[in-house]
Design a protein around this nucleic acid. Sequence first.
DNA 1: GAAAACCCTGGAGTCGCTCCAGAGTCAAGT
DNA 2: ACTTGACTCTGGAGCGACTCCAGGGTTTTC
Lengths: 145, 145
Amino acid sequence: MRIKTLADATGVEVDTIRYYEKQGLLPEPARQDNGYRDYASTHLERLAFIRHCRALEMPLVDIRTLLGALDAPGEPHPDVDRLVQEQIDKVRVRLQSMRALEKQLLLLQASCGGCSDQGTDCGILKELVAAAHGEACVCHSHASI
Amino acid sequence: MRIKTLADATGVEVDTIRYYEKQGLLPEPARQDNGYRDYASTHLERLAFIRHCRALEMPLVDIRTLLGALDAPGEPHPDVDRLVQEQIDKVRVRLQSMRALEKQLLLLQASCGGCSDQGTDCGILKELVAAAHGEACVCHSHASI
DNA sequence: GAAAACCCTGGAGTCGCTCCAGAGTCAAGT
DNA sequence: ACTTGACTCTGGAGCGACTCCAGGGTTTTC
């Protein structure tokens, strides 16, 4: 299977596949006589696994760990559970801050009564300036962005 | 006010302040005799504004537009309202996908009965492999990560 | 007067891709 | 047989928003 075929089968871009190989996530495939990469079905499976983990927003370094665990099925891999838990924690923190964000943006929007066209003094801008001065806002309740 | 003072006052790192200057978001301050940057209170306000917008996850390029609108208070700025709306849309899409993500990760976690220590065959890994094979999962309901 | 803390510049590194140039290869149509 | 277009290769640069570093100068503090 050539790289484009693999790309189409997994929905991963050609460049990205080569990138994963360079990063050691995808083993180097065999080469055809012309030097083209020749992938086997194991590559397809592994790439689908990587893709799935990326959909869960795991960083590549964590995925490498998971792949290592997969490659050593007989051995204990205490990291797997921890990685998933950490990922859950990350997502939750992010969810919290996104919810606050949405609220803040809606408030911001409400402060502008459709001033966009004529508007010399947009409420949104005023609001942003005022908020920057220290009134209740997302950035003060959440230090880390 | 020297750069560290400004950094402490706003919670923005020194490097980041210099970066904002290089990006044209923060005007070049005066210099002391020794070449040190000498900030005025206008810089503090502007930096707080930038910080607030960043807390709303606006990209720097959008913040530049908002700052431009602030700098031209007499003129109409039809972009402001649109930028906020776009930001809201972005946050909502992201919220949706984060919620699905959390659910998926929790399912994943439940599939492992605390196998981390002894575990030769972790349920999480099995689950990930199975999911990669195309069963219901986040990455199939949400094409873009 | 020495050590610590601060300041400067320019450039590199981070993450996870994405795009590009420049060259080679292959398949389909004329 | 020839041309066109799609595909492949490599190595390297670019993105966003920082963050860190080297190698130097200055100021403050003990």
